[in-house]
């Protein structure tokens, strides 16, 4: 028996999403990737905040708080 089933994408939603956190200067924009994460659905959102001196960025993703230097 030939299985002729086809699967079609559902409207909306997402099983796997890639999230990227970028940083850039404003005067001379050039995006640098700070973090990348993969999540199982589209319910996750990211947050980010610079340190006072602008040399680090803190971000929350997948229930974890991280701090990274700005390259």
């Amino acid at each position: 028996m030939v299985d002729n089933r086809v699967f079609v994408p559902a409207a909306g939603g997402c099983n796997v999403q890639e999230m990227n956190l970028y940083a850039s200067g404003i005067v001379s924009p050039m995006a640098t990737t700070i973090a990348r994460a993969y999540t199982r659905n589209s319910l996750y959102t990211g947050r980010a905040a610079f340190s006072h001196d602008g040399k680090k960025v803190a971000f929350v993703v997948k229930s974890g708080l991280h701090v990274k230097d700005i390259p």
Binding site: R5, V6, F7, V8, P9, A10, G13, C14, N15, V16, Q17, E18, M19, N20, L21, Y22, A23, S24, G25, I26, V27, I34, Y38, S42, T45, G46, R47, A48, A49, F50, H52, D53, G54, V57, F59, I70
Partner: peptide, 27 residues
């Protein structure tokens, strides 16, 4: 989900891209 540094010279932002959409029941 973005942030601007205090001195206004840098910006950070999140993006998202769906890699795999949910499958509906077999058609």
């Amino acid at each position: 989900a973005a942030s601007v540094s205090n001195d206004g010279t840098q910006i950070a932002w999140w993006t998202t891209e769906c890699l795999s959409q949910p499958q509906e029941a077999a058609t």
